[in-house]
Every structure is written in structure tokens, then in C-alpha cells.
């Protein structure tokens, strides 16, 4: 009991850093796509990756759940630690890692299944629900989380592809949330959506922060400023600047960051 406060405090600081990357290099065949990236991503925080097209932000995002493994020519070097464990360690199964680090893609990609089956997909393959009632509850909770329940509750057995673009993207978010991940990676989740759907998804991201660490890649600086607490600016494969969102947007240290934010490069 005596040590308790101390212990709790150290727990918090350790919990605070969810993902830490050190000296990460990524190669696509001969192209050096990511160079010496060091970054600490905090728990229960929205971190935005911004930067011009082709700067490597999506590539780095895909390193965090080893989605780059599916690309044959892609090679990753350096250390990425999730909760202190190297995710590129041989003992780590990428399948289990991806269950912990969920991902939402640029284009909504619902499976050609019913809305219910789309959301239940992850819980089913990971055995998260013991009974049908459990599964129903997970599906409902996830859809509510993704602010889709009211629109979808009467048509759960209809194909997910029949939804509108914004609804499809929220379905994909619900699908990712249902697997109970610890980190949620979002690769330009709003680039295919109209402003109203975008606003809904942004609101959702803010709510998701209560439970997950969210990493979002975005082209829209306004969006980064609206939803994130931390921002990282990538340029030509380098992580140029990383800090508090307010700091980056109002008072950037690096002149490249300033040029990008003010629209002079990009």
C-alpha cells in the first residue's frame, strides 16, 4: 500500500506511450520510402500524420500493424514497439497484432456481406463472443459507437455495400471497433466522403479517443487541427516535426513545416 501511488504514477507514464518507433527505415525495392523516423504515439490520444502526397505517412501507418507484410517488395528496418514489445519480432504473429491494431482505409471497403456480418466479422474470427446474444450486443455497441445504429438497426440483414459512402465508412469504423483493438489506424478516412459525412466521422474519432489510441493520416490540415492532439509532419520520407497540434499549426519550429502549413510546398 505504501508504494501504491508511486507505482500508479509510473504505470501512467508507461501507459501513456502506446507505440514507440525508433530509427525506422522502409524500402520499396530500391526506393527508400521512410528514413530514420522516431516517434512516440500516446495512448488515448488522436495523433495526426500530415504531409504532401508521397511523403511516406501512409507507409509508416501501415508499418504499425504490419500491413506492409502483404507487399512482397516492401522491407522494414528499425524498431516499432507496441506496449514495449517489438512488433517485428519473429515471435509476434502479425494476425494477432492486427487484432490489437485495427485499421480503417481510405476508401470504404465493406465486405460483400450483410451489415450485421460485416461488424460481426472480427469478433467471429477472434472468438470474442460466446453466444449469439453476446455477438448481438457487440454488433449493437459497435454500431452505436460508429453513430450508425439508428440508420442501420432496421436493415442489419441487408448488404453493407448498399449503404451510402459515409455510412459505409462508418460501418468500416464499426467493424474495426468491434474487434476491440487498442490502437486504431485511419488512412485518410474522410477523403472519399462529403463534408457532412466527414463531420460525422470526425466527431466519431473524437469519441473513440476515450478508449483507443487513434492515428490518422490526413491531407486536410483543417481536419488535423480539428481532431488531433498531436501532429507529425512528414516530408520526403523524413519525420520533420512532431509535437502538440496547436504548437505545430501556430508556431512550427521547422521552416519546412511552416511552408507546408502556409501552402508554399506540398
Amino acid at each position: 500500500m505504501y508504494d501504491a501511488p508511486n507505482l500508479a504514477e509510473s504505470q501512467v507514464t508507461q501507459d501513456n506511450i502506446k507505440i514507440s518507433a525508433r530509427n525506422v527505415q522502409v524500402f520499396y525495392a530500391d526506393t527508400h520510402a521512410i528514413k530514420d523516423v522516431d516517434v512516440d504515439i500516446l495512448d488515448k490520444t488522436v495523433t495526426a500524420f500530415i504531409g504532401p502526397s508521397g511523403c511516406g505517412k501512409s507507409t509508416f501507418l501501415r508499418c504499425i500493424n504490419r500491413m506492409n507484410d502483404t507487399i512482397d517488395i516492401c522491407k522494414v528496418q528499425g524498431d516499432i514497439m507496441l506496449d514495449g514489445q517489438d512488433i517485428y519480432d519473429k515471435r509476434v504473429d502479425p494476425v494477432q497484432l492486427r487484432a490489437k491494431v485495427g485499421m480503417v482505409f481510405q476508401k470504404p471497403n465493406p465486405f460483400p456481406k450483410s451489415i450485421y456480418d460485416n461488424v460481426a466479422y472480427g469478433p467471429r474470427i477472434h472468438g470474442l463472443a460466446r453466444t449469439k446474444a453476446d455477438l448481438d450486443e457487440i454488433v449493437e455497441k459497435s454500431l452505436r459507437r460508429a453513430a450508425l445504429w439508428n440508420e442501420a438497426k432496421d436493415r442489419l440483414d441487408q448488404p453493407g455495400t448498399g449503404l451510402s459512402g459515409g455510412q459505409q465508412q462508418r460501418l468500416c469504423i464499426a467493424r474495426a471497433v468491434a474487434t476491440a483493438p487498442e490502437v486504431l489506424l485511419m488512412d485518410e478516412p474522410c477523403s472519399a466522403l462529403d463534408p457532412i459525412a466527414t463531420a460525422q466521422v470526425e466527431e466519431l474519432i473524437d469519441e473513440l479517443r476515450q478508449e483507443f489510441s487513434v492515428v490518422i493520416v490526413t491531407h486536410s490540415m483543417q481536419q488535423a487541427a480539428r481532431v488531433s492532439q498531436k501532429t507529425a509532419f512528414f516530408h520526403l520520407g523524413h519525420l520533420v516535426e512532431y509535437g502538440e497540434t496547436g504548437q505545430i499549426f501556430t508556431n512550427p519550429e521547422d521552416e519546412r513545416t511552416e511552408s507546408y502549413i502556409t501552402g508554399r510546398i506540398g
Binding site: 500491413m67 497484432l97 482505409f105 460483400p112 474470427i125
Partner: peptide, 27 residues
């Protein structure tokens, strides 16, 4: 079948054969 389908499934932690059985083949 679009690669996005497979990515979506892998991104949820599905294995290759689960992805094929439950996503690729139905599509």
C-alpha cells in the same frame, strides 16, 4: 476481387485462409 477487400480483412486480424474463405470467395 478488389485488394481493398483483402486489406480490410487482414486489417481486422484475419488470417489468409479466413480472408479467402469469408471475404474473397463470397465476393
Amino acid at each position: 476481387v478488389p485488394q481493398a477487400m483483402r486489406d480490410g480483412s487482414y486489417g481486422l486480424g484475419a488470417t489468409k485462409s479466413e480472408t479467402i474463405r469469408q471475404v474473397v470467395l463470397p465476393a
